[in-house]
């Protein structure tokens, strides 16, 4: 083995560099692979016919995914409507109000929430939320509403942990200054701390959106997967991710390429969201 300690240091460093770069390599390979498989169809059918087309019948030559793009954004928005207020409130409580013991109890619970597999969320949705909506609100239950509720819960850990970190990073002097001016605790939070942590909180929402738009398994199980743009919150809908997972098993030829094109669109959307989130976090620092 290597005896010279300096050489050993070098050796370890280069091994670590190689592994670090390999993650970049994977990202690059995934990118190339999806583009390679997805782009030919854009060339053949036309960007506009795919992105703006409203008819998806890949075995009959229609590859429009516009309804799915709209649906993906609808569920993501729905998830935010439900998850954002809950998540932000929880983060504020954790950072400003809760004592040490409560924090010790709440934080691990939230981490557990993040660790529950999405198929379990989907299962709970099918067993409890879908029948509740069907029996008390209407429709088949497989709907925008059910999906939004489940996704709203699923993005809670993301929103809470990132908002919490950005709230905690607000300097203590801000709080002290505010109290010294005679502000109450809520006034301090509302007027000083939240504005100071604003970009981090926004970033947490955007990362939550990224998680919601990319969620697949739970969505397939409760969204109903119909191909039309929903006209009410009780209508079923199909997301971009759901489309890929639903049909990949049986797809061949152009149908398969169509699913990869769906993947390209999804990739672009997620990249934009991540870019915005990163931008937000950087500005704060």
């Amino acid at each position: 083995m290597i005896k010279n300690p300096v050489k050993k240091e070098q050796f370890v460093k280069w091994v670590l560099v190689a592994f670090a770069l390999s993650s970049l390599l994977f990202l690059f390979l995934i990118f190339i692979f999806i583009l390679f498989e997805g782009l030919p169809l854009f060339h053949k059918i036309g960007l506009k016919n795919i992105i703006m087309g409203s008819k998806w019948a890949p075995t009959k030559g229609s590859f429009g995914i516009f309804p799915m793009i709209v649906s993906s954004f609808l569920v993501t928005f729905g998830a935010l409507v439900i998850g954002a207020p809950m998540g932000l409130s929880c983060a504020i409580y954790l950072s400003e109000y809760s004592g040490k013991r409560m924090k010790m109890f709440l934080k691990p619970a939230l981490e557990l929430l993040a660790g529950i597999p999405s198929v379990v969320y989907g299962f709970l949705g099918v067993i409890y939320i879908v029948p509740l909506i069907r029996n008390y609100i209407g429709g088949s239950g497989f709907s925008l509403l059910a999906t939004s509720i489940i996704l709203g819960i699923m993005i809670l850990p993301t929103i809470i942990s990132i908002s919490f970190d950005s709230l905690m990073s607000v300097p203590k002097t801000y709080r002290e200054g505010s109290f010294a001016m005679g502000a109450t605790k809520w006034q301090t939070i509302y007027k000083v701390i939240i504005p100071a942590a604003k970009s981090g909180i926004l970033a947490s929402f955007i990362l939550g959106m990224g998680r919601a738009i990319g969620e697949t398994m739970a969505v397939i199980m409760i969204a109903g997967n119909a191909l039309r743009i929903p006209t009410s919150i009780l209508d079923p809908l199909r997301t971009l991710t759901g489309n890929i997972a639903l049909e990949l098993a049986y797809a061949t030829g152009d149908h398969r390429l169509g699913l990869f094109s769906t993947g390209v669109v999804l990739l672009v959307i997620i990249m934009i969201l991540n870019y915005i989130a990163n931008f937000g976090i950087k500005r704060k620092m």
């Binding site: 998806w56 497989f142 109903g224 997967n225 119909a226 039309r228 209508d235 997972a245 639903l246 098993a249």
Partner: peptide, 8 residues
């Protein structure tokens, strides 16, 4: 019809 639910 496109408005019909789909299961896999």
């Amino acid at each position: 019809d496109d408005g019909i639910m789909v299961q896999d």
